[in-house]
């Protein structure tokens, strides 16, 4: 295959699912901040806090379902940690040197693997605790713990996800197109995901 050929990095299902995650996260985070800090202006965009509560809860359902659907695709590769991944972290992914020579990476690089595991863990906790706060399945018990966990995972996410957005856009030109077209130039894939290219036999 010529280096200019395009190879598929994400299926259309993954693209749609990723957008569902992104949009629901945005709605959840914005309304979440509005609840935390009583942002009345944001509340009125949603048509008042009562309505914002409903939107927040149902956006949470969308987020939880799409997060669940990512598991099949990203979890196995993320759990597969190799010495190349350790070396990648040793070089901080090459993000702090002009000459980036990092060890060859699989379909996800070491940073992406770690990111996925963090977001998956935080996502499971925030979804489960959100459901407890919403539906109060055990009357009074577990609500304060859920409130605490919901907010800890919220803090984790508003740190991890913007970093992910930066790295997938400005910091790495050519990456964002995966979320639009699902394809990347083979030359690009060879540089960033050499082991994956080899494994796939492109």
């Amino acid at each position: 295959m010529s280096n200019n050929a395009m190879v598929r990095k994400a299926s259309s299902f993954e693209i749609v699912n990723h957008w569902a995650l992104a949009v629901s996260f945005f709605v959840l985070a914005v309304s979440g901040y509005a609840f935390l800090f009583h942002l009345e202006g944001v509340g009125s965009v949603f048509g008042g806090f009562n309505q914002m509560r409903a939107v927040h809860n149902w956006a949470g359902v969308v987020f939880a379902v799409s997060l669940f659907l990512t598991i099949f695709h990203y979890l196995p590769v993320s759990l597969h940690f190799t010495s190349d991944d350790a070396a990648w972290f040793g070089k901080a992914g090459g993000y702090f040197s002009k000459r980036a020579a990092v060890p060859p990476q699989d379909e996800l690089n070491a940073g992406q693997k770690l990111y996925y595991l963090v977001v998956l863990a935080a996502g499971v906790v925030i979804s489960a605790s959100g459901i407890v706060i919403w539906l109060r399945p055990w009357a009074k018990s577990g609500i304060l713990l859920s409130h605490l966990l919901h907010n800890i995972s919220f803090d984790l996410m508003v740190i991890a996800i913007p970093a992910h957005i930066y790295l997938a856009t400005l910091a790495n030109p050519g990456t964002f197109r995966i979320m639009v077209y699902g394809t990347v130039p083979l030359s690009w894939a060879k540089k960033r995901h050499a082991k994956w290219v080899q494994r796939m036999g492109f």
């Binding site: 901040y33 935390l36 800090f37 090459g94 993000y95 702090f96 040197s97 002009k98 980036a100 605490l148 907010n151 800890i152 919220f154 803090d155 508003v158 740190i159 913007p162 970093a163 930066y166 400005l170 910091a171 790495n172 030109p173």
Partner: peptide, 26 residues
Amino acid sequence: LKPLSYIGLGGVVAASLIHYVAFGPK
């Protein structure tokens, strides 16, 4: 946790900007 939610978000945005200026994209 409440202050951390905006300090964290602001910190990441600031760090990204600084990184972009200091190291630039790959």
